[in-house]
């Protein structure tokens, strides 16, 4: 098989990347693979290189608005994030919240943490989750009124998940 990129050399590197059931197949020769930085440092396929492709299309946002999106703490801009695929600091998660959430859903299938909680944060978490539910309910009402049913379904699932988790969490507390 020939390399699908240059069409000259025999393809030596074959792999399929499957993210949320979307398959992309690569058949490349070594030099094209190197050029595409598929075997970068540590020979890992760098997922962050794909992030710029995953995040919402730039034309969806007017240029003026985008340039205003800057993290107040570290100064990272929205376009800087899209370029590098990496956030600058913990406050970036607030600054870019609106574009980050759909991105996290694309990468992980859902954007809701259900794993370990640092002992220090454990108390504030159940309180925080109740606040989340309120915010999500508001978003859900908005989505329904705008007839964005796919988004509404996702929000409904997120709310359900939080409610289940909170219940488990509270039951766990009662036991201990």
């Amino acid at each position: 098989m020939q390399c699908k990129r240059c069409g000259k050399n025999p393809a030596k590197i074959h792999f399929a990347k499957i993210v949320n059931n979307q398959t992309t197949e690569y058949h490349l020769c070594e030099s094209c693979a190197k050029q595409m930085n598929i075997m970068g440092a540590n020979h890992e396929f760098h997922l962050e290189n794909l992030i710029s492709g995953l995040s919402s299309e730039p034309q969806e946002q007017p240029a003026a608005e985008e340039s205003r999106l800057t993290c107040p703490a570290c100064g990272l801009t929205s376009s800087g994030f899209k370029r590098s695929g990496r956030l600058g600091c913990v406050k970036c998660y607030e600054a870019f919240h609106d574009e980050l959430m759909p991105l996290l859903r694309k990468i992980h299938g859902s954007a809701h943490h259900t794993g370990k909680v640092p002992a220090k944060s454990a108390e504030s978490v159940s309180h925080g989750r109740q606040r989340d539910v309120k915010r999500l309910r508001k978003e859900l009402r908005e989505a329904i009124s705008k007839e964005e049913y796919e988004r509404a379904a996702r929000l409904r699932d997120d709310i359900r998940q939080i409610e289940v988790d909170t219940k488990v969490h509270m039951e766990g507390e009662k036991e201990s």
Partner: peptide, 27 residues
Amino acid sequence: NEMETSLDYAFRPDIGYCTACPTNVGT
């Protein structure tokens, strides 16, 4: 857990441990 007793981790209840790359966020 041991490290956490003396360090304050970047953590958000909604999305978990905050990491530089969004592909690592959560756990």
